[in-house]
Design a protein around this nucleic acid. Structure first.
Length: 586
DNA sequence: GCCGTTTTCGGCCCGACTGTTTTCAGTCG
């Protein structure tokens, strides 16, 4: 069993217990253990077998035993009990905005076993009455959940919001189910482990490699000497691991005309229910298959064979070319790539709500090839995440200085590449547009990214006024996750992005493409508008732990879809140049 | 539940807004 699956079991346990357990520290311990498992470099299953799981931070005898049971039987008693005590309907109710455990329990108690799907359907149809703890606000939230889930999966129990779901020409959400990029990528990793050795080099394809922010299925391309025989082998070994195959080799539209000997197609469903299209190509056909499989279907029709290398349109720009928004001869030659990125300009440490010390984050960034790393912990007065006030920010400077000394030693003595840790902040933008730190504190910093976390439901006028005040301060370098959307979870603020872009031009403020697949904010359309207006971008992971530094690729994909060149992205500058070019130095 | 230790139990995660069971519990970030 993979670490992620074990982590999911403890997250589920914590989520359910959080609703009924008056003692928060127990389920908080489960949640902490889940996070630790998800991020652990070693296999939880192996550590458990070796009896060494107790050595892991946050794992004591009780959790160790639960993991043992989980590995042996696929579940454990506490989880089963939580599933009985907290039914799915109750759990779903608490995920409505504005509804917490207390309200959910009151509503659920009056329900008489009605499912969440039925409840949301009645709310949407207008046949749900106020009463029995059900307020007008709850009915509205249920109706919104119904609309979101209709867009996302149609089964009535899905996403809390349609945030991020693409719209059709008529402006209606395109029917899902939709999945985040990290969700499908983890499936790709799982698949890679399961495939027989005759199947080589599995890699994502389809909408994922076109930089789509949400996808409806995972496309995986792999290679084998004999695709037909390999497909049979795959079918057999995946069936044994709980994967279903929906269809045998039904040809995909964009692969029409290819012989089965060239490309065998398997339509699979992962154990978590995510559809996977696996195409296995032989050596002679793989280039052609990759060209067509990346899609969309209209591209394969327009260009059935891959052109010479120098004339290829990057996958991420195909849809814009098809839409007539981009002339093939105007496709930039210097589109940004992950390899161009020199550093991270928005990530956290354990000084605020991050999980790792500064030195660990810095080493992880260095291992990924970065030259600089800006520690941007939350600022005051964001208390829940332990935001730093000027005094703590000053104290953090000492730790950053010693981290830099340590990294310098590792460079000189162990031949490690040199990485420079920069002093930064994720500065809190307050409700009236004032800032969480005084200028005297900001003046000492190398990098200031300002973000909105509180009062997200303000009117468009209030939000833009807030942004205007922030941007007028020359000590602010960039705006982080400008619209504050959470993919499939929470709608964006009422921010007028066009107006924001105009102000960014006026004040030379950099806008972030937050690379976390939970955000992807700005999105590719907004980033494209920003670039067209002459705004520079910064692509950042917003990592709270070492492993999430890997999320950068999602942000790079979105920026490429927006047509960002190397020169448009400030993370591609050497640190000295980046710092010398800040607004405050102009 | 875990941790650290004062080895046996107390600390761990806070402040502000919301809305109506109208004065604070519930919810959020």
């Amino acid at each position: 069993m993979r670490n992620a699956e074990i982590a999911d079991a403890f997250t589920e346990l914590a989520d359910r217990l959080a609703i009924i357990d008056p003692k928060p520290y127990r389920w908080m311990a489960y949640r902490k253990a889940a996070d630790t498992f998800r991020d652990l470099g070693d296999s939880v299953a192996v550590l458990s077998d070796e009896g060494r799981l107790g050595e892991v931070e946050g794992v004591g005898p009780a959790i160790e035993e639960k993991v043992r049971d989980l590995l042996a039987s696929g579940t454990f008693k506490a989880l089963e009990r939580a599933r009985e005590d907290v039914p799915d309907t109750l759990l779903a109710l608490t995920r409505l905005p504005g509804v917490g455990p207390a309200t959910a329990k009151k509503v659920h108690a009056a329900l008489d076993g009605e499912s969440f799907a039925s409840l949301t359907a009645r709310a949407a149809a207008g046949t749900l009455e106020v009463g029995d703890g059900i307020t007008r606000k709850i009915i509205d939230a249920l109706a919104a959940a119904h609309a979101a889930s209709a867009a996302n999966d149609g089964d009535g129990g899905g996403a809390a919001s349609a945030s991020g779901i693409p719209l059709d020409d008529a402006g209606a959400p395109i029917r899902g189910p939709w999945f985040r990029r990290d969700q499908v990528l983890s499936i790709a990793g799982m698949l890679e482990e399961l495939l027989p050795t005759t199947v080589r080099a599995p890699r994502p394809s389809g909408a994922y490699v076109r930089g789509a922010e949400l996808v409806r299925e995972l496309c995986v391309l792999a290679e084998a000497d004999d695709p037909v025989a390999a497909a049979d082998e795959v079918r057999e070994c995946l069936a044994a691991r709980g994967w279903e195959h929906a269809d045998d080799g039904a040809p995909l539209e964009r692969l029409a005309g290819l012989a089965a000997e060239q490309a065998a197609t398997l339509q699979l469903v992962s154990p978590a229910g995510i559809p996977v299209e696996l195409v296995i190509a032989d050596d002679a056909s793989v280039e052609l298959v990759e060209h067509r499989f990346a899609g969309p279907a209209a591209w394969a029709a327009r260009e059935p064979k891959p052109p010479a290398r120098g004339r290829r349109i990057p996958f991420e720009l195909r849809e814009r070319v098809l839409a007539g928004e981009l002339d093939p001869k105007d496709v930039p030659k210097d589109l940004v790539t992950a390899a161009h990125m020199r550093g991270e300009l928005h990530a956290h440490s354990d000084w605020s709500d991050g999980r790792a010390p500064i030195i660990d984050m810095a080493r992880a960034a260095r291992a990924r090839g970065d030259e600089f790393f800006a520690v941007c912990d939350h600022s005051a007065p964001y208390a829940m995440v332990n935001g730093l006030d000027p005094a703590r920010l000053q104290a953090q400077a000492d730790e950053i200085a010693s981290a830099n000394e340590q990294l310098q030693r590792e460079h000189e003595e162990a031949g490690e590449p040199l990485l420079r840790v920069l002093r930064g902040t994720e500065l809190e933008i307050l409700a009236d547009g004032s800032l969480g730190l005084p200028d005297s504190a900001l003046e000492q910093l190398d990098w200031v990214v300002a973000s909105i976390h509180v009062q997200q439901r303000q009117s468009a006028a209030a939000i833009i006024e807030r942004m205007r005040r922030v941007m007028e301060n020359p000590l602010v370098d960039a705006i982080g996750h400008p619209t504050s959307r959470r993919m499939l979870v929470r709608d964006r603020t009422a921010l007028d992005v066009e107006q924001l872009i105009a102000m960014a031009v006026e004040h030379a403020v950099i806008l972030e493409v937050n690379a976390n697949p939970d955000r992807l904010d700005l999105d590719s359309d907004q980033a494209r508008m920003a670039l067209a207006a002459g705004v520079r971008l910064t692509i950042n992971t917003d990592a709270h732990r070492p492993s999430t530094l890997a999320l950068r690729d999602h942000g790079v994909a979105v920026a490429r879809r927006a047509g960002a060149r190397v020169g448009d992205v400030v993370n591609c500058l050497p640190a000295e140049e980046l710092l010398a070019g800040r607004r405050r130095n102009r």
